[in-house]
């Protein structure tokens, strides 16, 4: 069975060896595993790519079940962009089912990655270790690292690296590099697009730091549904609590919810938020038990649809920032 690691190595070799897409040629096919990476791909690739996104707006990649059409898209693709860090539990079986020979690119490579229980480190020095995390023997999606959170986690690392804008810049650079390897004639365009977009990301990053910096220190604890905001916390100084762990796949136990409610009271959390990809009932229950107001919806693992408030990555981060700061200000 071709695992993600094997696909990545084989695909990159092919991408280097194969003739690149010619100038003026048809766009080449790209698959992005979920909507946030799809947005980055669109910014970098523009009309030189034909993009298929597997897990679309408001979709939950933790529990996504691929379809034959996804396998067909993978078969046609020249490049497949994935987050890695075991975010896409369905990926290995989809690679096998599709028989794709595309370059499978883990766009989180080189980003500052948070292990579940330690300090951030760069996700490239331990590539082999990371690759090992990506292909399980069986086709199960369940994680294996132990952690003191509810839910069933996906491995030793927190996969939600895009919640740090600096990491998002690395994602974009990796995408540009992957497109350059596939289409050398278009490389200048990809690099230009990436540079322009990274400029926007840097402005975004500065704005987030400024806004969070103005929040009172004793009001920076907030609650979300699942543990998707570790990077935001690490980067910008908020403190997130959540009843579910890194994955939405498993339900939080009653004991975990009770522990969280105690913690909410002890740390005097300011607000609680639902997420676009999770059932709001759990957040509503915790809000009712703790007397916290629901502060609105945050977008964690997926963009909104195009008419929603988080149709792009930049919109997503700005929406989340506004929602959080407004809720805290009003608490």
């Amino acid at each position: 069975m071709r695992s993600l690691a094997q696909a990545a190595l084989a695909g990159l070799s092919l991408a280097v060896a194969a003739p690149s897409v010619q100038a003026g040629a048809e766009p080449f096919d790209v698959v992005a595993s979920f909507s946030i990476i799809g947005d980055f791909a669109r910014e970098v690739g523009g009309d030189r790519i034909r993009l298929t996104t597997l897990v679309g707006p408001n979709g939950d990649a933790h529990v996504y079940e691929p379809r034959p059409a996804d396998a067909a898209a993978m078969t046609k693709a020249r490049v497949v962009l994935v987050n890695g860090l075991q975010f896409e539990g369905f990926l290995d079986r989809l690679i096998e089912a599709s028989g794709t020979t595309a370059a499978v690119v883990e766009v989180s490579k080189g980003a500052h990655i948070l292990p579940v229980d330690g300090e951030a480190h760069d996700h490239h020095a331990d590539e082999d270790k990371a690759a090992d995390h990506h292909h399980d023997e069986a086709s199960d999606e369940d994680g294996h690292a132990e952690k003191d959170h509810a839910g069933h986690d996906h491995g030793a690392y927190d996969p939600h690296a895009w919640q740090s804008v600096e990491n998002a810049e690395r994602y974009v650079k990796n995408i540009a590099e992957a497109f350059c390897l596939t289409d050398r004639d278009g490389c200048a365009t990809y690099q230009e697009n990436a540079a322009a977009y990274i400029g926007q990301l840097q402005t975004l990053d500065a704005d987030i730091k400024t806004a969070i910096g103005e929040l009172p220190q004793d009001k920076r604890t907030i609650i979300t549904s699942h543990d998707a905001f570790g990077y935001f916390e690490h980067e910008y100084g908020l403190h997130f609590l959540a009843p579910k762990g890194l994955s939405t796949e498993a339900d939080a136990s009653a004991a975990d919810i009770a522990a969280l409610i105690r913690q909410v009271r002890e740390e005097r959390a300011s607000a609680i938020f639902v997420e676009n990809i999770t059932n709001p009932r759990l957040a509503e229950q915790i809000a009712a038990e703790t007397g916290l107001q629901l502060g609105g919806a945050l977008y964690s693992d997926a963009l909104s649809d195009k008419d929603g408030p988080a149709a792009t990555y930049i919109d997503l981060m700005r929406h989340n920032l506004t929602t959080i700061t407004s809720a805290i200000a009003g608490s």
């Binding site: 079940e65 691929p66 379809r67 034959p68 996804d70 396998a71 079986r93 989809l94 089912a97 086709s139």
Partner: peptide, 8 residues
């Protein structure tokens, strides 16, 4: 019948 591994 329902697909396993792929949803169909």
């Amino acid at each position: 019948v329902g697909g396993t591994g792929l949803r169909y």
